[in-house]
């Protein structure tokens, strides 16, 4: 690989990191994916329970589902109807559509659910799909860890340790997603989905979901 190609690849990677950074105007900080309800119930009350909740949602819920959708969308599949049909609740729909619209405006792609808007933008880059999926999952996990750090609350070091402990899982999910068929999409995060429904009627809400 020549210097020029390496430089192009690095700028593509930097573009991905920028799109997924908390400073990019996607607005991720406003969404907790139902975690706020679990915190309000004291089901998530410390670093251990927060790490487990986030890890389970990644491994058995939306993390794995989005990873598979993203891997297929990166290869050009039209997944708009499927992605929308998979929304488990009104708030999870809003979380995906609103962030997707905000991301699309800033990144210059079509408004659509976040995972697909991100895929459309990332498709133009020369970065391995496995890396793209891993970074996307990382940003999802980092946003939830940040929510837990602020509102459980946890120490910043504790919050970062949870995120660090999820790296191997994120790597595995990204690798598996690049070879999984769409039929492999399936969730066991029943109470994670339920949490997003319960959140709709939570009295005091800081997060939009």
């Amino acid at each position: 690989m020549g210097m020029g190609e390496r430089w192009a690849m690095n700028t593509d990677l930097l573009r991905l990191v920028q799109w997924l950074s908390p400073a990019f105007p996607t607005g991720g900080y406003a969404y907790s994916h139902g975690l706020e309800w679990a915190i309000a119930q004291r089901e998530v009350a410390d670093a251990r329970s927060a790490g487990r909740w986030i890890g389970d949602v990644l491994r058995f819920g939306a993390g794995r589902t989005d990873a598979i959708l993203l891997a297929h969308a990166l290869r050009g599949a039209d997944l708009l109807a499927l992605t929308r049909a998979l929304f488990p609740s009104a708030e999870r729909r809003m979380e995906s559509e609103t962030q997707g619209a905000a991301f699309a405006t800033a990144a210059g792609v079509d408004p659509q659910p976040l995972v697909l808007a991100f895929a459309q933008a990332a498709r133009t880059l020369s970065v391995e799909h496995e890396t793209v999926v891993a970074l996307y999952l990382y940003s999802f996990a980092a946003n939830l860890c940040s929510a837990a750090t602020r509102f459980v609350p946890l120490g910043q070091t504790e919050g970062q340790r949870i995120l660090g402990d999820l790296h191997p899982l994120i790597g595995t999910l990204a690798r598996d997603a690049t070879v999984a068929s769409l039929d492999a999409i399936g969730s066991a995060a029943f109470r994670g989905d339920l949490a997003s429904m319960q959140h709709e009627t939570l009295d005091v809400r800081i997060f939009r979901t």
């Binding site: 679990a38 089901e43 998530v44 329970s49 487990r52 909740w53 389970d56 949602v57 491994r59 058995f60 819920g61 998979l86 999409i185 399936g186 969730s187 066991a188 995060a189 029943f190 109470r191 994670g192 949490a195």
Partner: peptide, 19 residues
């Protein structure tokens, strides 16, 4: 789409799974 294999069942006590 629900999917419960051995690993999900083992994690079933988790509050994001089945509690």
């Amino acid at each position: 789409p629900l999917s419960f294999g051995d690993e999900a069942i083992a994690a079933g006590a988790g509050s994001a799974i089945l509690g």
